[in-house]
């Protein structure tokens, strides 16, 4: 049982997609999680629900709406075309956008839990030490949730690597561009190539297992971040 060029291509593409998605999420999730952790706004509930939606929605629903919104006749599609970016569905960039939304709760929730633990008090203490809110976020809040940040990154990466439904809807199964490992696996099964399918599936299982082992082995130290994930 070994992996052929098509499988390696798909696995590498998967890794690239997961890495890009994780990078975007690590930029996007901390401020959002912080806002959710400390805001007294009445919009907190709806926004938190929106972030958590991908946990309960079939990925195809998300994919479907993204297809409509980002497609040539969708509002966002019109925008990206006007900006000269073309349309995003069926491109690698489009997959990154979709994966970011799809994996958002996996990045935001552990961070939010850890940040709620850190709380506003840290920010107040920092303020009385001549540290403004932005600097305090970088030098006080983020360092205190660094373990949750690693957890968020690993989970985002693993979750993105395992996604299928969204990619199927807006990916288009293009080798080297959008044919990630899970989609190739589907193709292999349909072509009755069980040998190759086994090898690829096993690679995915081992990878996901390694990621989760990493996260859960550190649950003591990571405390509430992982606990929040387990509550689901």
């Amino acid at each position: 049982m070994s992996l052929g060029p098509a499988e390696w291509q798909a696995l590498l593409l998967t890794a690239r997609l997961a890495a890009a998605t994780t990078a975007v999420l690590l930029l996007l999730a901390p401020p959002l999680a912080w806002w959710l952790a400390v805001t007294p706004s009445r919009w907190r509930g709806p926004v938190a629900a929106l972030v958590a939606l991908p946990l309960v929605l079939p990925p195809t629903v998300l994919g479907f709406y993204l297809l409509l919104a980002l497609g040539p006749s969708g509002p966002l599609g019109a925008l990206t075309q006007a900006l000269g970016l073309g349309t995003l569905p069926f491109t690698f960039t489009g997959l990154v956008v979709a994966s970011v939304l799809y994996s958002l709760p996996f990045a935001v929730q552990p961070l939010e839990a850890a940040m709620a633990q850190v709380g506003r008090r840290s920010l107040e203490v920092a303020a009385t030490l001549r540290t403004g809110p932005l600097a305090a976020f970088f030098w006080v809040v983020l360092p205190q949730v660094r373990r949750a940040l690693v957890a968020a990154g690993v989970l985002s990466f693993a979750h993105t690597a395992g996604e299928f439904g969204v990619v199927l809807m807006i990916g288009g199964n293009i080798p080297g561009e959008t044919r990630v490992a899970s989609v190739l696996l589907y193709d292999l099964v349909e072509a009755l190539e069980y040998e190759r399918a086994h090898a690829l599936a096993l690679a995915l299982v081992l990878f996901s297992f390694a990621c989760l082992t990493y996260v859960y082995s550190r649950r003591e130290a990571w405390g509430i971040g992982v606990a929040a994930l387990e509550r689901r």
Binding site: L67, L68, G71, P72, G77, T87, P89, F90, T91, I170, G172, I174
Partner: peptide
Amino acid sequence: AQILHGAPF
């Protein structure tokens, strides 16, 4: 359906 939504085929 994908072609109609802009798939690059």
